[in-house]
Each structure stands twice: as structure tokens, then as C-alpha cells.
């Protein structure tokens, strides 16, 4: 096993592209180191991307934020402006692991680990976040929604790494929220989850809604009809019920030790409802 601390994104991409064996990218390491220790993977090359300039910073850009791929959950949680604009994104990231893990874990790592239950992902997709990718053929941008391909799989090509995530500017009267269900209160993996991003009209009705569900399909699911069910409403009970039903309709979960199909499906609607109410209140809506 070889270890490379890349000094540039191009160096990292080049080394990953050239390696014939198994590779792993090391940022926070909270997944990779556990996999190594338990013997789940035996990579031939590990590329550490933490030393790439700019990769550990959060910068303002076009009214939004560009977040480096190696920024930790704790650093995101301490960024007041980011948390104010995208509280749902921040709370998703901050649910990864424990307090200790928060000091290391990254949202890009959570995204690329490609678990359908990743806590950072639904809110990023709901936010229409865009990933910047460095690869052997240069740089490209890709919606976060298009990164996951299935459990443990992404659409990234060989040699490609995500170097940052862009969160767009927020208009007034807009906010988001993320909720997951776990049987405990922490140290657990989502049985089902929901990220909801809302934009309100001046009269308090919903102008736009984007609802994304986690852990109920091989990848996160954008529940378009659920979002539409909220538009023009002020989240009255009828609208919420229709939204929950629309969420249930797009679920395609598995039965496993963490939850049954029926339970996960039911939870997706319940969580989306609760998250929508939180996002609505944060956006300044009142009922």
C-alpha cells in the first residue's frame, strides 16, 4: 500500500488515474481508516487530498459559498454565515458520526461514500448544490444530485476527485431543514431521512419547494411531486398530507436489520412533513 499526499488537485487526479490497483481518497478518513482497520479494503494507493491549497476553506462566491472538500463537519458548524443561509445543510453534515468524528469528517466524503443513508446528501441535493470535480481531463462542475449512482457507487470517473461543493445564493424568505430517524438519539445511521428546501412568497405561501429523501432507495430521491404539493400553500394539513403521500410514492426501500419497507416508507413522509414545518418557520413563514 502506497500513500501519496498530493500537493495539487492535478497531482491527485493524475496519480489516481495512473494507478491500476485499488485506490482510496483520504480526506477526513472517518470511513477509509475504519475500512482499513477492519480489513474491509486493502488499497494499493491512498491519496491524501488535505494538503491541496484551498481544499480546507469556506469562501463566499456569487452570493453563495464554496466549501472545500476537506472542510470538517465541525468547521461547517462554526461558520455562522453558512449556517444562517443553509441551516439544513449544516445540520445534515453535523449529524455524521460523533463529536470526535465531526472534527475530521467531510461532506464530500459522506457524498462519495455513496451510502443512501448519508446524512449530508439529502440537504445538498435539496439545495441544488454543485460539485466541482478535478480529473485527468481538467475541471468540471456537476450537480450533487448526479453524483450518487447506488450503494457504494458514484458517477465519478477514474481519476476524478471532488475538490469543492458550491451552495448557491439564498433569496429572502428561504430556508431549509434536515431530519433523520434513528432508534437512538445519536451514534446511529438513518433509517429514513428528509431534506427540505423552501422559498416563500411575500404572503407566506410556498414559492418553491425541493424535497429529497434518504435511505429509502439505492440513492437519495428527489420527490418532485411532494415539492409541488406544497407550492402555493402555507403548509396546511391538507398540503402536508398530500406531500407525505407523494413522498411515500417515490420510496423504494429495502427490508433489513435497520427497518422494514413499510416502516421506512411511512417515516419518509413523516420526516418530510416535520422537516418542511421547520424549514417553513426558518424561512419566516407563520401559520
Amino acid at each position: 500500500m502506497r500513500y501519496l499526499a498530493a500537493k495539487t488537485a492535478a497531482e491527485a487526479a493524475g496519480a489516481l488515474a495512473a494507478e491500476k490497483g485499488l485506490t482510496r481518497i483520504l480526506a477526513g478518513g472517518t470511513d477509509v481508516l475504519v475500512q482499513l482497520r477492519s480489513g474491509m479494503v486493502e488499497p494499493d494507493l491512498i491519496v491524501d487530498i488535505k494538503k491541496i491549497p484551498g481544499i480546507r476553506g469556506i469562501v463566499a462566491e456569487s452570493g453563495g459559498f464554496r466549501i472545500g472538500a476537506a472542510v470538517s463537519g465541525a468547521e461547517i458548524g462554526e461558520h455562522a454565515a453558512l449556517c444562517a443561509a443553509w441551516p439544513g445543510v449544516a445540520e445534515g453534515v453535523q449529524l455524521i458520526g460523533s463529536t470526535q468524528v465531526q472534527g475530521r469528517c467531510t461532506m464530500v466524503g459522506n457524498l462519495c461514500n455513496a451510502s443512501p443513508a448519508g446524512d449530508a446528501v439529502p440537504s445538498l441535493v435539496a439545495a441544488n448544490a454543485v460539485a466541482r470535480i478535478a480529473g485527468p481531463d481538467g475541471e468540471r462542475d456537476c450537480p450533487v444530485a448526479d453524483i450518487p449512482a447506488g450503494p457504494g457507487k458514484t458517477t465519478l470517473k477514474k481519476g476524478e476527485i471532488i475538490t469543492s461543493i458550491f451552495l448557491p445564493a439564498r433569496p429572502d424568505r428561504a430556508s431549509d431543514a434536515y431530519l433523520r430517524f434513528i432508534p437512538r438519539t445519536e451514534m446511529d445511521i438513518a433509517v429514513a431521512s428528509a431534506g427540505v428546501s423552501l422559498e416563500l412568497n411575500a404572503d407566506g405561501t410556498v414559492k418553491a419547494a425541493r424535497i429529497v429523501l434518504g435511505a429509502v432507495a439505492p440513492t437519495v430521491v428527489v420527490a418532485d411531486d411532494a415539492g409541488k404539493a406544497l407550492v402555493g400553500t402555507n403548509l396546511d394539513d391538507g398540503a402536508l398530507a398530500a406531500m407525505a403521500k407523494a413522498c411515500e410514492a417515490v420510496c423504494n426501500p429495502i427490508d433489513d436489520k435497520r427497518g422494514t419497507i413499510e416502516y421506512r416508507t411511512k417515516m419518509a413522509g413523516t420526516l418530510a412533513k416535520r422537516a418542511a414545518l421547520i424549514a417553513y418557520a426558518r424561512a419566516g413563514g407563520s401559520k
Binding site: T185, E186, M187, I189, D256, K257
Partner: peptide, 16 residues
Amino acid sequence: LQNPTFLDYRVPVASD
């Protein structure tokens, strides 16, 4: 056995 880890064998944590 499907859950031979403390992740899926859920003992209570302090916050529970």
C-alpha cells in the same frame, strides 16, 4: 447474525 456491531446492536447511549 445480521448485526454483529455496536452500530446495529443498539445499546443505549448517554443521550438516550
